[in-house]
Design a protein around this nucleic acid. Sequence first.
DNA 1: TAGATTGTTAATCGATTAACAATC
DNA 2: TAGATTGTTAATCGATTAACAATC
Lengths: 217, 217
Amino acid sequence: MKNRAPNDIPASVVRRFPKYYAYVQRRRRDGGEWVSSQDLGEALGLTSSTVRQDLSHVDFSGISKRGYSTVGLEHVLARVLGADQELRVVIVGAGNLGRALALHGEFAGKGYRIVGIFDSSPRLAGRTVGTLTIQPMKDLAAAVKRRKADIGIIAVPSESAQSVADQLVLSRIRGLLNLAHVHLLVPRRVSVVDTRIVASLQELSYAIRSNRFGRPT
Amino acid sequence: MKNRAPNDIPASVVRRFPKYYAYVQRRRRDGGEWVSSQDLGEALGLTSSTVRQDLSHVDFSGISKRGYSTVGLEHVLARVLGADQELRVVIVGAGNLGRALALHGEFAGKGYRIVGIFDSSPRLAGRTVGTLTIQPMKDLAAAVKRRKADIGIIAVPSESAQSVADQLVLSRIRGLLNLAHVHLLVPRRVSVVDTRIVASLQELSYAIRSNRFGRPT
DNA sequence: TAGATTGTTAATCGATTAACAATC
DNA sequence: TAGATTGTTAATCGATTAACAATC
């Protein structure tokens, strides 16, 4: 409802937006015209209050008694999340994970165009991954600039992650998705989001062992 | 310091433990004997106050003027995170991502043993991924039980994620790592952690566009 | 209309930070 | 010893939830 500047939205809220977006999109595709805060809450494990509070940060109103228009909400969330404009991505690290991401079909459909993949190993340079050719690290900076990459995905071992980040920062990248499990130090103008798979597994290990709702159903 | 039950530790704190653990481990390997709350905070982008507060949830004390013993802290965090005992993992979905995870060397070193990989496509069944053979979905339940799998990694398209989760739940899995971007409904006795790569990219898109520290350094 | 659902305010709950006495 | 750093209490800050008048 409010007409806030986008950077007023708290991170905790932004982190839920992709969930809302994915769910609303599915609903709309399944022919649903309306979705209520209660529907959203139930589907995503939130209270309806949280949902309404979150959506108040976005320039879009629901309608009493019906809820939110799926089409309208999908559009406004797409705009906020930048899903309506293409971002250009380079992947650094052509190991199993890097190659898998390069081949992962989902990104293209979501507006992320992979414009390069790099690896420090001379063994890999020149090999192809889908339609891309693995390039040596020395070409990274030039390629980021020429191909106007916005985002770098760091899929290298922890030891080299910071050095790769430094190179990407110098090439004027705007954001980093960090798959390595080190904390990256970068200037404020570059945004970093971590997706640490091993850390998630460890979080899960803890959860499993402290789960007080025993084994039997 | 305190001798709390493990399930007293708030999720926000547990989520930082893998970071502490990885950092302390590196420090110890580099020959560091001591690490202070300030060191940890600076390395991980936290205040030293948060670090001390977090570590007070763990049964281990630092020493005035020196900090925390790297060896001691590493051990106690390993115990809390379950990194000291092997967990057995099955991967469902042998697409690019599933196969990449199966081949990803890091898991083995961290105590996660991959004991099976499954896919619904008859085209894939029988093919090998590293030392594993892709099995058909109909064998999932039996395999989870026989191979005593603790954790299932869901690496299938969103549409089938819930159905895969249901099958794993019936096979008495204890935890799920969900790579699909749907919210999974499972009984309380099963723990779920989401790692949504696309959602992270969207979070990053928002961050890039709302970053008020413009392009120039 | 009556009832359902929004948007928003106020209350609660939880997490982070500041501050500082204890201590090695 | 003097100084650095912990562990912990109290203050602040932010996020979630409850409640309800407005409204379609």
